[in-house]
Computed example of a mutant assay.
Amino acid sequence: MRKLTYYIACSSDGFIGDPNGDATSMFAFLDEEFLGYLASTWPDTIAAQGREHLGLKGAENLHFDTVIQGRGSYQLALDAGTASPYGHLREYVASRSLGPSPDPNVTVIDGDLVARIRELKAEDSELGIWLCGGSQIAGELLDEIDELVIKTYPQVYGSGMPMFGGAGFAVTDFALQEVRTFGNGVLVRTYARKR
């Protein structure tokens, strides 16, 4: 069974973006040390434009062969003129309003998201599935998430888009596996779901 990993950036108080989903304030922390870590450890999570800039075009995927994102996250790429931001992965967009896929590499999931994720997890592959965002689909898929990789930036938003939007109250336990710290104050915490 493949893992579904929620690999996400968030503020110190648990928001993945401002009330409109904008997280560009976190870009200020992409210094040489942290970018080097992302490029060497998580190259499969860097979008096509960033991969080219960092010399990662054609780099091997280390963790994932599939990415799932919500309409809001995907819309950022569309607005930037990119219909396949993660062309090195199989791309899925969970959306009931997008309509037909604008790119042959992108599959739109407009039906039962949980059932589709279970099908993807049951596939035979050594690589996992990356839940890229957004908040609402993370809330909908909470019971399916096997691992959390949280890049925590030293900022407080006060309010905004939570990591798990729309999820009702329920305690879900994860075990801390690793913590990486960086000179710019960023923490990367990895948790495995307790079953």
Rank of each mutant, 00 (worst) to 15 (best):
Q69V: 00
G87M: 07
P85E: 07
G81C: 09
T82D: 15
K57Q: 14
H63V: 09
G58D: 10
E60C: 02
R51D: 05
T45N: 06
H53V: 13
D79G: 15
H88A: 04
G81F: 10
R51G: 04
H88S: 05
E60Y: 03
G72Y: 01
L38K: 14
H53L: 12
D44P: 04
G58S: 09
A80L: 10
R51E: 06
G81M: 11
A47I: 12
L76I: 12
L54C: 04
T82E: 10
Y86L: 07
Y74H: 05
A47D: 14
L56H: 03
A39L: 08
S84C: 09
A47N: 13
G70I: 01
E52I: 14
A39V: 08
R71Y: 10
A83P: 00
A48N: 11
K57L: 05
S73V: 15
I46L: 14
L76A: 13
A59L: 07
G55W: 09
A39R: 08
H53E: 14
V67P: 00
S84W: 02
E52G: 06
Y74R: 03
K57H: 08
L56G: 04
Y74F: 14
T66I: 09
L30Y: 15
L76V: 12
L30G: 10
T66E: 08
H88Q: 11
F34L: 15
I46R: 00
I68C: 00
T82C: 13
A39C: 10
A80Q: 05
H63P: 05
H88C: 03
L30I: 01
G70E: 00
L56N: 08
S73R: 09
R51F: 01
L54G: 01
P43S: 11
S84I: 03
S84G: 13
L56S: 12
E33L: 09
E32Q: 15
L76W: 09
A77G: 07
Q75N: 12
E60W: 07
A48L: 05
F64S: 00
L78V: 13
T45A: 13
S84D: 15
Q75K: 14
Y74I: 10
L62P: 02
G55P: 12
W42A: 01
L62F: 07
P85G: 11
Q75R: 15
E52C: 04
A47P: 01
Y37C: 08
W42I: 02
T45Q: 06
Y74P: 01
D44H: 03
I68S: 00
R71Q: 12
F64E: 03
P85Q: 06
D79R: 09
Y74Q: 06
F64A: 04
F64T: 03
D31S: 04
E32Y: 06
H88T: 04
E32A: 15
L35W: 03
A80M: 11
G55Q: 12
Q49H: 13
T41Q: 13
A83V: 02
F34C: 06
N61T: 11
T66G: 07
A39I: 07
G36L: 07
W42C: 01
E60T: 15
N61K: 13
P85H: 07
D44E: 12
Y74S: 02
Q69K: 05
N61F: 05
G87K: 02
L54P: 00
L62N: 05
H63F: 11
L56E: 08
G50H: 06
L62G: 03
G72W: 01
V67F: 01
L62T: 12
G50Y: 04
E52P: 02
Y86F: 15
D65E: 11
G87V: 06
F64I: 05
Q69E: 14
